[in-house]
């Protein structure tokens, strides 16, 4: 039963290889995308920290996105 499932009447290697390739390459792209996203979030915060207090306030008041990025990142840490 299990051997049958793995061998798939001789087509097993082709079937498993194609599903494997799809899953692995999708996982790699996902991890890479996530890493880039985190990197830019961190860079944004670093940039933000270099500002003076009054400028920080101005950015936060003007930009809702800046607020969001800071909020999500502090949660992740």
């Amino acid at each position: 039963m299990i051997i049958n499932f793995i061998s798939m009447n001789g087509y097993g290697s082709f079937v498993w290889l194609s599903f494997g390739i799809v899953l692995i390459s999708c996982l790699v792209l996902y991890l890479k995308t996530k890493k880039t996203l985190r990197k830019y979030e961190k860079e944004f915060i670093a940039e933000f920290e270099t500002l003076s207090e009054s400028n920080k306030k101005a950015v936060l008041e003007k930009s809702r996105i800046a607020n969001q990025i800071l909020a999500t990142n502090s949660r992740a840490d």
């Binding site: 792209l29 996902y30 995308t33 996203l37 830019y40 500002l51 101005a58």
Partner: peptide, 26 residues
């Protein structure tokens, strides 16, 4: 769904990149 997930994450990255440039300009 997977494609949508990647798209949304990439798009988020692009927006952050853009915002980063704007912060510098302030």
């Amino acid at each position: 769904l997977y494609g949508a997930l990647i798209f949304l994450m990439k798009y988020k990255t692009e927006i952050i990149k853009m915002k980063k440039k704007n912060v510098k300009r302030l």
